[in-house]
Design a protein around this nucleic acid. Sequence first.
DNA 1: CCATGAACCTGGTCGC
DNA 2: TGCGACCAGGTTCATG
Length: 271
Amino acid sequence: MPELPEVETVVQSIRDGLINNEFEHIEIRWPKVLFNFSEDEFLNNLVKRKIQRVERRAKFIIIGFNEDILAIHLRMTGKLYFQNNIPQNKHISAVIKINNGNYLIFEDTRKFGRFYYYQSQDYLNNKLGIEPLSNEMNGRILLNILHSKKRIIKALLLDQHIIAGLGNIYVDECLWKSNIHPETISNKIPEKNITILSKMIKSTLQSSIKAKGTTVVDFTFLNGRSGKYSDQLNIFGKEGNPCPKCSEIIIKKKVAGRGTHFCPDCQVIEY
DNA sequence: CCATGAACCTGGTCGC
DNA sequence: TGCGACCAGGTTCATG
């Protein structure tokens, strides 16, 4: 499901209900949800400890205690939200009781979502790439990254080890806005387009966060409200429709293993 | 180093 | 209405 803006939206929606509170208990309904630790370890290490911070790193939700963290990845269909009673919905992977009486629910239809426990955030930081909304990210850095590799640009932008947070929707949108064909080899892309791409990545993600993310199928947060960025999509899911810039018909094709939308007229492979 | 396809799961949609 | 094929916002692993 969620990419950076949707995860950021979830973090903002649960932060106030967690900061300075404590976990009291956890009920595991899908055992695989705990990826690298056990239910006992959860109870021994994470219960009755004050939550210091709730943040996002790439597509991970970080719940920080002291140095150690509980990291949650929603994958495709994960939802994390509060409820004041124990729900009986079909696809709930875990229920965490909070000391204020609420329950933090992890609901996940496809069961790909996972909880990770790490002694510090370093492990994640070391394997994740640059945050696209950080000051570190700019046209110069992006040029260095793209020109130091010879990879299909779509695959490169989806690779979390390099730039962390983009997913299928926002990659398609940003490449379209920058007039870059998704199959272009990264080191062939002109500097001019990369400068624009860097700006489009930032502005697109920021606009989406403002709209509380994109709802494609069933992304919700809080009381089932959905993100409004869907209204601002130009290319994703628009195959068969005219390109908003040139009116050519939008194409959908598999690139880097993912359904990929682009305008065959605006987005040209440059050499 | 990189591309590809499968695997992990469930449910929705489309064509016949 | 039923059924199979295919698709889905993500990531990881094996293979060539």
